[in-house]
């Protein structure tokens, strides 16, 4: 199977799952903004994305996207470390134009994943999980997302933790988005700088939209201002 055996096939899988996850992030970040504008509207979305069959199908597709992306990342990194050889360079200088994040995608990905687990515990475990199993784990109604958001971000530590998480995500995306297009072969000399700018713009928009929520609560606007 060339999607596993060939290097470009593996990169294709990475870029397709990556692009899919970026689209999900775009949706998720837009959805989050609703909690600032209208908590009732946000709860309506939470209701809609509860334990309904279509939401569960989408969640499992999303989860498999994450799993494939991570498994391939580990496999690719393992192969790359082997290809680099046993002896490492004694002196290693950075080249001009090589971004730090491009060389540390696995580390950044691991940070993003670590916080993702925390995030799942903070929200998914108290919301969709409750609706699925009937075991009540949170303080509020499982579809009352706005209340959970307010509860979590009333603690400034969580606000800071989430902002750090989003910074790592930003670094991961700035390299990941243009890299995905490059791996898909959708690039040439003219478009290379443009695609990099597009990647920076998209990742900045996504991360700023995500950050808006903890910053909003950190400034104390969540309890009416």
């Amino acid at each position: 199977m060339w999607l596993i055996d060939s290097s470009i096939g593996r990169k294709l899988v990475m870029s397709i799952t990556g692009t899919f996850l970026v689209l999900f992030l775009l949706f998720h970040s837009i959805m989050n903004l609703v909690v600032i504008i209208s908590p009732e509207g946000y709860n309506a979305i939470c209701e809609f994305l509860g334990a309904n069959w279509y939401a569960l199908v989408a969640t499992s597709i999303l989860a498999s996207g994450f799993v494939i992306h991570i498994l391939y990342a580990l496999y690719l990194t393992f192969q790359n470390m082997r290809a680099r050889g046993a002896e490492r360079y004694a002196v290693k200088n950075n080249q001009k134009g090589v971004s730090w994040s491009s060389q540390n995608m696995l580390v950044l990905g691991a940070i993003v994943l670590g916080f993702l687990v925390l995030h799942m515990y903070n929200f998914w475990f108290k919301m969709q999980f409750v609706e699925l199993t009937g075991i009540h784990t949170g303080d509020f109604h499982p579809a009352d997302g706005a209340a959970y958001v307010q509860q979590l971000f009333s603690n400034w530590v969580y606000c800071v933790v989430y902002i750090v998480w989003l910074a790592a995500l930003w670094l991961h995306l700035t390299h990941g988005i243009w890299s995905a297009l490059q791996s898909l072969g959708l690039n040439n000399k003219t478009w290379l700088p443009r695609v990099k700018v597009i990647a920076n713009v998209i990742s900045t928009i996504v991360v700023l939209m995500f950050m808006a929520v903890p910053v909003y609560y950190l400034l104390g606007c969540g309890s009416g201002c």
């Binding site: 290097s7 593996r10 990169k11 690719l76 192969q79 790359n80 082997r82 290809a83 680099r84 080249q95 134009g97 090589v98 971004s99 491009s102 060389q103 995608m105 390299h175 243009w178 890299s179 490059q182 791996s183």
Partner: peptide, 9 residues
């Protein structure tokens, strides 16, 4: 050989 991760080095 390894897999390209588009670092540009």
């Amino acid at each position: 050989f390894g897999n390209c991760t588009n670092t540009g080095a």
